[in-house]
Structure formats: C-alpha cells, structure tokens
Design a protein around this nucleic acid. Structure first.
Lengths: 344, 344
DNA sequence: AAACGGAACTGGAACGTTCCAGATGCCGAT
DNA sequence: ATCGGCATCTGGAACGTTCCAGTTCCGTTT
C-alpha cells in the first residue's frame, strides 16, 4: 500500500531512509501510534502492534537517534575519552566502563585523543555537541578549563590522578603511594637492601610512586640506600637510565611502570646479569607486557575493570542528582611473577 | 540584555543549554544570522559577526549536533567498528583511519564489539541510528546480513579478509599468501630446510597464510619437509602446538601470528634450545609484541596506517558516488629482527 | 436512557538547527 | 525622482521524533 514500500530496491544506490510516517502510512495508523508501538508501550492493542512491527520490518525502518535525542533532551549515550588506544591500561579501563554502561542501557561512544592534548579537547567538544548524557575521561591529561566547562553541562568523571581536582569532576584513581610501598616491601622481604627506583615524568602518579618508594626505604631503615634514577623523553632516556641502574651496585629495582621495568630487564640481560638472579625487577600497572616478557614481570596491578565500573557508578549518581564531588581511591595489589629473586 | 546571560552560574547544578535563539536575543539579531555568522558565512558584516561571536562566547553557546544532523541529513561523523581494543593490530588501523578522517573534516565515533559478534552488530545498529555518514569495520567478523543491510544505507568499508564478499561493501586487506611466501623464502635463504608452520583457526587470513607456506615449500623443493602444526582454542592449544614444534626435528618455524611465534620462542627457551640458534622463528602482523620480546621477533608487517587511510579513501569515493565494489589488497613486508639465525 | 470509565488511537506542538525565498536599505546610474 | 543591484539581514518551513491533550468507541453502571 505504502508508496515507499513498493519502490524497487536498487542495490548499489541508497534509498531515502523511511521514517515513522512512512511506517504509519504502511500500517494505516497515525505516527504517534507507531512511536508507541515501537517503544513497546502497552497502550497499543496486540493486533495493531504486530501490524505496525511488520510494516516497520517490511520498510527496513530504523529509528533516528538524532530526532529522538533532540526532542527528549537526553540521548542515552555516554562519551568515553581516552588518550591513547595503544595503551593497554587505558583500553582495559574502557572495557570496564563499557560493561557497566551496557548494563545500564547506555551506548558508549569512544573518542580517541591520540596523545594530543588539543585533539583530546576537540573530541570532548564533539561529544558535548552530540548531547551525550555524561563523559568519562580515561586520561588525566585534559585541559582543566575544558573539563570544568564540560562539567557545567553534563556529569564528568575522570579516571586517573589529575594535577589538581576540577570542581564538579569526580575522579577514580589507584593509590600509587600504597602500590609503591607494597613493591618496595616485597623486594625488601626477599633480602634486598640496595633497592633503586627508576622513575620518569613529574606527573602526579609518578610523583606519588616515588614518594611511596622514598618513604618506605626510610621506614625500613634503608634510607641511605635510596637511589632514584630519573629519565625523561622517550625510550632512549628510559634505556639510558636503565643502563645506569644496571651499572650501579643495586640488586633490585622498583620501576615506575612496566615499560621502564622492561628496560631494566633488557639492560640486565645485555650486561650478562639477567633477571631475576642478576637483578630483581618490579614494575607497575601490570599491563599485558608483564605476562609476555621473559622472565614474566612482577608488577603492581591497578584494578582496572573495577575502576571502570566505579566510574560508571559515580556518573549514574551524578545523573541521579548528587552535586558534591567525590574522589575514589582504590587499593592496588602486587602480582608476583618471575622477575624478582632473593638477594644474593 | 539577554535574560539567560544574566542568570547566575550555579556551580554544581546544570543550566539549560543556550540555543541559537538565546544568542540571537543577546546579540539583537535573528537566529538565521547567528547561524550564518557562526558558520563563518561572508554574507555577514564584520561588526555584526563579531558581536554575535561575543554573545555566543558570553553565553557559553555550543551548537547542537543533533539538530544540525537532523536538518542537514548528514552528520560529518564516521562510525568505526572494531572487534577488540586489546588487539594492537586493530588499534593501529583505527589510528590510520582517524588521521585521514581528521584531514577530511570527519568526526570519528569508535564502537567496540569486545570480541562479541552480536554486540558488534548492535554497535553497528547504534551507529546507523545516529546517522553516521559512513562505516568502517575493522573486523572481518560482522554478521554478513547486518553488513549488507548497513551498506544499503551508507558506504561501508571493511578492513580485513571476510569469509566472502558482501555486495556493496569495499574491503582492504593485506596479501596473506605473499606475506607467507616472503617469510618462508627468508627462512630458506638462511639455509633452513626443515621449516614448519604453526597455524591456528580456519579464518580466511590464516588459510591464505597456510596455503602460501605450502606452496612455497613446494616451489623450493622442500615439499617433503612440509609440516603444519595446528592448534585451536586459546593460549593452551597454542602452547601445546609450540611444544610439539620444538620437540620435532624442525630448525625453523613460520607462525601464523606474533602470539603463536611468541609461544614458539618460549617453547624453545623452555627446552634449553633458545631462539634464534636453537630455533628460528618468524611471526606475522608485526605487533608491538615483536619489539618487546627477546629475542626481538622477525615478523611480516601489514601496512596498517596505509590500510586505514586507504579505507578512508574508498569511503570518500563511495560518498562521491562510486557504486561498483572495490577490494584492495596491499603487499606486506618482512621486518627482520633477531629471532631467526642461519641453519646449523 | 443517561452517565461514566477505560482502552485505543490521533493531531499538533515542541526540540534546535539549516535552508530558502524574500525584505530592507543604501548607493550610483539613468 | 526612479530604478537596479548589491550587501545585509529576516521569517517561516523543514528535519523525524516524542509528548501532551484530546477524541472516539464501546461496554458497564446507575
């Protein structure tokens, strides 16, 4: 009956997308009723509902999320912003967020900053223009101004440890200091005293780990053995610093992350004193690297899936009306593998 | 002047989002002119343009992509569908797509299937409901029906080698057979004759690599040494198969991908005959694993960034009106590192 | 017979843009 | 004075939904 329905399907060229009005005409009812039927409202009689569904099927009708979002003022979409797709730590947090979002009926839109701060900001802007109902930033990198601005419009949760808190933005982070304490105490328990720290960047997370290291060395009466090897820049700086560690009289090293730990493993191997006997190494983040590398890396694990779903939970609370800021800190845990051995 | 502007900013609670009409009132012009001014139309006098921009700034105006998309019928958004965020091969292709999309002024929306075929289909559906202008599937996994349906509405490009081609869907893939040929010839050039193949899955890509292996062994007169070790399931199967390879009299192995190659490296190490002297290994995909692992893995590289931008190019051609299907195949190249040595 | 109530359905107004067909005002040419 | 043409600006109609306030119909109660 409907004009559109009988139009032949031309493969290769694209037809006009059928609307709710087309379906209404095809089923011989009003557009309002089609809307109700497709959303499963029970004010629609069974027979009519079936007829409408069949008509929609026949026309290949697909609802238009733009129109719906426009009229409803909400979109059931969540924006997730991440710095770097190549970082398994980030992607695993994202997976945690997605699982919870799915369960709550939200569609997740991922936006990727590709390690570029201004691009990250632009992506955030795109998400806001799309009227997402909330934003989770898996990145402590965002321009605080942009973040504060976003928080004025929709709930925003950051996963990570920012330079400083932005009013209106909840955060979820792991306790970097506690993780460092655990790593150092573990090495000490193996009999090591000359425990060095391999550290990069002055970002808050790295700073907290370094402080945890320093503090624990002091607490253990190893204050005089405290030795921090700093690096900056990319892999070159990391490798140079790792080489210095190996050349020193250190027997164990706590690295700021798994990549730095890997550099230490390689350095020790190259020097003919391979880990774990030649050098005990502990990393941080427990990325997939830790399982991959030989010897498998002992590393401090952040509960990423939990962090993701916690972020989602905070967001829902905000949508529910909470206005005071919350900053959740989760306890990390050491995953022991093969990269550390008792001191000689 | 405008009512909305003088309303106090209540931190913690969210204000109504200002619209183009609010800006128009604030600047004392019509909404049409605001629209023109914000889009940089030059039919707007400089003075008025500046006034409008200032008013928009003052109100914190942000355009509504839903409304724009609805009226324009196009959204300048591209949907990118990927199977698995944890797969560095996929994420690097995505990065290639994003770079080209950026350059063309498209916003990329990433949707993540999390290794679940039906979720992947739902994500595709969400993207279509959002009226994206095109879809790139970085996954050869999608239900062909859903894909064909999508292609009827918008241009669709798949990166990967599907079971079979879907009409209306362009594809970009690497030449798996050629990659296998190169890997085997390289091992043969090192003097190896007993070259085994470690293979998993019956997916098209794996099949093509296996065929390339078989064929080349024949061409080199090594047909009698042809030996394929199959595995299936997860890492357990892979490791068992790798152990068989190591236990055999093989001196070299071409693995179907880097993970399988890693299993071979580990197996050789465990057997006291570490690579490369104890066993020469070549992988496929040149993932970040290849650089990470010791010895660093020689592996066949797919030009991922190029594949991404090629996919974007095909999409633009479709948008430009092309209707016949295209299937691009790119040449892979061997990246030589340290995991293969001359035959004993 | 009238009144009521509920189930099933409808028409029009929103939502915030862009697009289109004008309207307005000004300047120089006739 | 009138006209044409240009630059600048405006009002209303779309876009495809949902929402709201009704309307219709029918069976049941008074």
């Amino acid at each position: 009956m409907g004009g559109v329905a009988t139009e032949p399907t031309r493969t290769g060229s694209r037809r006009r997308r059928p609307t709710i009005v087309d379906v209404a005409a095809e089923a011989g009812v009003s557009k309002s009723l089609v809307s109700l039927a497709l959303r499963g409202d029970r004010g629609v009689s069974e027979a009519t509902g079936a007829r409408i569904l069949a008509a929609a099927q026949r026309l290949g009708y697909r609802s238009n999320a733009l129109a719906r979002g426009l009229v409803q003022g909400r979109t059931a979409m969540l924006g997730v912003l991440l710095t770097d797709l190549a970082n398994p730590y980030h992607t695993e947090v994202v997976t945690g967020i997605e699982e919870s979002a799915d369960a709550e009926g939200f569609t997740v839109l991922l936006a990727h900053g590709r390690r570029d701060r201004s691009r990250l900001t632009r992506q955030l802007e795109s998400l806001l223009q799309l009227n997402v109902d909330g934003v989770v930033a898996v990145s402590s990198w965002l321009e605080p101004g942009a973040l504060a601005d976003a928080a004025r419009r929709v709930p925003v949760v950051m996963v990570g440890r920012p330079e400083e808190f932005t009013p209106g933005v909840d955060t979820v982070a792991n306790d970097d200091r506690a993780g460092a304490v655990e790593a150092v105490r573990y090495l000490a328990s193996l009999g090591h005293t000359r425990i060095a720290h391999l550290s990069g960047s002055r970002r808050p997370a790295a700073r907290a780990r370094r402080e945890g290291y320093r503090e624990t060395m002091g607490d253990l009466g190893l204050g005089t053995c405290t030795e921090v090897f700093e690096f900056d820049g990319g892999s070159a700086g990391r490798e140079r610093a790792a080489a210095s560690v190996v050349a020193s009289e250190t027997t164990a090293v706590f690295a700021v992350n798994d990549l730095a730990a890997l550099a230490a493993l390689d350095g020790a191997h190259a020097a003919g004193t391979p880990a774990p006997e030649g050098l005990s190494v502990v990393g941080y983040d427990n990325t997939s690297l830790a399982e991959t590398v030989r010897p498998r890396l002992t590393s401090v694990d952040q509960p990423r899936l939990v962090m993701g779903s916690l972020a989602m939970g905070l967001l829902l609370e905000r949508l529910g009306g909470r206005t005071e800021d919350r900053h959740e800190v989760l306890a990390p845990s050491l995953v022991v593998r093969d990269s550390a051995a008792p001191a000689p």
